[in-house]
C-alpha cells in the first residue's frame, strides 16, 4: 500500500480489501459442532480449556447455516454419509471440510470389511485438510486447523481469475 502507508495515525491500517477479507475469514472459521465417533472426544478436548480452540478464533456453532468449517470427526456410515452431504449443502459459502482421523480419511479400521462404512468422506463432500491419526491428538487437529487457516489466508476472494 505504498502511497497511503504511514500517512495516517498508528491505529489505522491500510490494506487491500481482498487481503483483509481472507484475513478476516481465516482468523474466525467457526466450526460446525457435531461428533460421529471417538474422534469427537479429541475434538472436544481440543476445544476445551487445555488446548482452547477459541484462542485461534474458532468456536462451535450448532447450526450448519452459521458455520464455516465442518470437522468430520469419526466414522461416517453410509446412512450418515447422506446426512453429512446434506449438512454440507446447508452451510453457507465459503465452506471448508476437515477430515479428522483415519475413518473420515479412508474408512480406517473398517477399510476391508465394514459393509456399512463410507470409505472416506471425500467420496461425498470435498475435503480441504486431512488429519491422520486414530484418533488424532488435539495437537494434530490444531495443526490441521492452522493449515486450513493458512489455506484460507492465501485465498483472494475478490480477485478475478484470468488465464486458465
Amino acid at each position: 500500500m505504498g502511497v497511503l502507508e504511514h500517512k495516517f495515525q498508528d491505529n489505522i491500517v491500510v490494506a487491500s480489501i481482498d487481503k483483509l477479507l481472507s484475513w478476516a475469514r481465516s482468523t474466525s472459521p467457526w466450526y460446525f459442532q457435531f461428533g460421529l465417533a471417538c474422534c469427537a472426544i479429541e475434538m472436544m478436548a481440543t476445544a476445551a480449556s487445555r488446548h482452547d480452540l477459541e484462542r485461534i478464533g474458532m468456536m462451535p456453532r450448532s447450526s450448519p447455516r452459521q458455520a464455516d468449517v465442518m470437522i468430520v470427526s469419526g466414522t461416517v456410515t453410509l446412512k450418515m454419509g447422506l446426512r453429512v452431504k446434506r449438512l454440507y449443502e446447508q452451510m453457507a459459502d465459503p465452506k471448508y471440510v476437515i477430515a479428522m482421523g483415519s475413518c473420515a480419511t479412508s474408512g480406517g479400521p473398517y477399510w476391508q470389511y465394514g459393509y456399512h462404512v463410507l470409505k472416506g468422506v471425500d467420496l461425498v463432500v470435498p475435503v480441504d485438510v486431512y488429519v491422520p491419526g486414530c484418533p488424532p491428538r488435539p495437537e494434530a487437529l490444531l495443526e490441521g486447523l492452522l493449515k486450513l487457516q493458512e489455506k484460507i489466508r492465501h485465498e483472494r476472494p475478490l480477485t478475478r481469475k484470468t488465464g486458465t
Binding site: L78, Y115, V124
Partner: peptide, 25 residues
Amino acid sequence: LPDDWIGWPLRKDYETPETYHGIVV
C-alpha cells in the same frame, strides 16, 4: 441400517453392495 437397505449383513452369504444412493463402496 437405513430402511431402504438391501440384504441381511450378518448372514454368511451376504455380499456388500457396490453402491448406496450413488456413493461408491
